[in-house]
């Protein structure tokens, strides 16, 4: 079904740039159970990125795009910042919003899609930096949660305004000195995951993107819960290696160091009772699907041997 929608007109196929031919032939649109393991074996939904070499945001992007449950029926809403440099290279519908407005845009979009395509799956996913989510866009972020808008908000938390050279953000740690915040932060990192829970989010996770399987799991959970129940929020640590003085190979270690049990990105999750029920159901279905797929493969191998 989904592949049908991204068919190139046959007479035009040979003139299309190869990246589009690949996208149609070898991408994972419509593949059941798509996930991070498809990276490197099929066409990714991200062509290239324009971030600094080794920027953990680029890893996060890859894992997220590989894990969207229905990319052909997903619209992502971005905001200004380092993330916005990547969206032009992404093979999923996306809208760039005025800095901070992302959750307001997504609210309208999600409602419009529900009216235009009743009964069909249309996922809306906001992906923005911490400056956009927690500072300039905090009003829009919170109001969308209060209103129980059914979409996922992902914050790439790099603890400062990276794209404009390192200004202080609400998610910056207390005492941190950045290039454009020389005095050092005087107040604590805003506890947005807790605020999200209190504001009505049904699934909230705070973690790093050091483990692709974990990112896949939380993305899928967040999107499914948002589809069926209400707002969800993911705060992912994607350190700005440029601004914290690390080189391109050090992003992964920085994330590992920051996710230790006593650190600020130790895994934390809040799941509402309704969401728990849904996720249990989905997990059971997924188990069944995997068992059926395994059996099918075994049967095929057996038939091949016979």
């Amino acid at each position: 079904m989904s592949k049908e929608r991204i068919k190139i007109a046959p007479e035009m196929f040979e003139i299309m740039p190869s990246e589009y031919q690949d996208l149609v032939d070898r991408a994972t649109y419509g593949k059941e159970g798509r996930g991070w393991k498809d990276i490197g074996t099929s066409k990714e939904l991200i062509e290239e990125h324009s971030l600094c070499a080794g920027c953990p945001e680029s890893m996060a992007f890859r894992y997220i795009l590989a894990s969207l449950p229905a990319p052909e029926d997903t619209v992502m809403v971005g905001s200004t910042g380092c993330t916005s440099l990547v969206f032009p290279h992404v093979g999923v519908h996306n809208i760039h919003s005025l800095f901070g407005n992302q959750n307001a845009i997504a609210s309208g979009l999600k409602r419009a899609l529900s009216v235009r395509f009743p009964g069909q799956v249309k996922d809306v996913v906001v992906l923005a930096g911490d400056g956009a989510t927690v500072d300039i866009g905090l009003d829009m972020t919170l109001q969308a949660w209060f209103r129980q808008e059914k979409f996922t908000t992902i914050c790439f938390d790099n603890e400062l305004y990276a794209n404009t050279g390192g200004q202080e953000s609400g998610l910056m740690q207390k005492g941190f000195v950045a290039k454009m915040a020389p005095v050092g932060k005087t107040f604590e990192k805003v506890k947005l995951p807790e605020i999200a829970r209190e504001s009505g989010c049904h699934y909230v996770v705070n973690c790093t993107v050091s483990k692709p399987n974990l990112v896949e799991k939380v993305i899928k959970n967040a999107i499914h819960v948002a589809r069926e129940i209400g707002p969800t929020y993911l705060q992912l640590y994607t350190p700005c290696i440029l601004e914290i003085g690390k080189n391109s190979m050090e992003g992964l270690q920085e994330m590992r160091d920051s996710e230790k049990p006593t650190e600020r990105f130790a895994y934390r999750e809040y799941v509402s009772d309704e969401a728990k029920e849904l996720l249990t159901e989905l997990a059971a279905k997924e188990k069944e699907r995997k068992a059926a797929a395994k059996k099918q493969l075994a049967d095929k191998q057996l038939a091949g041997k016979a």
Partner: peptide
């Protein structure tokens, strides 16, 4: 017209 998203589009592609 590059993407065959409906029948009309596919016909236009042939004509082009």
């Amino acid at each position: 017209v590059l993407w065959a998203w409906n029948e009309k589009a596919a016909k236009k592609a042939t004509a082009i």
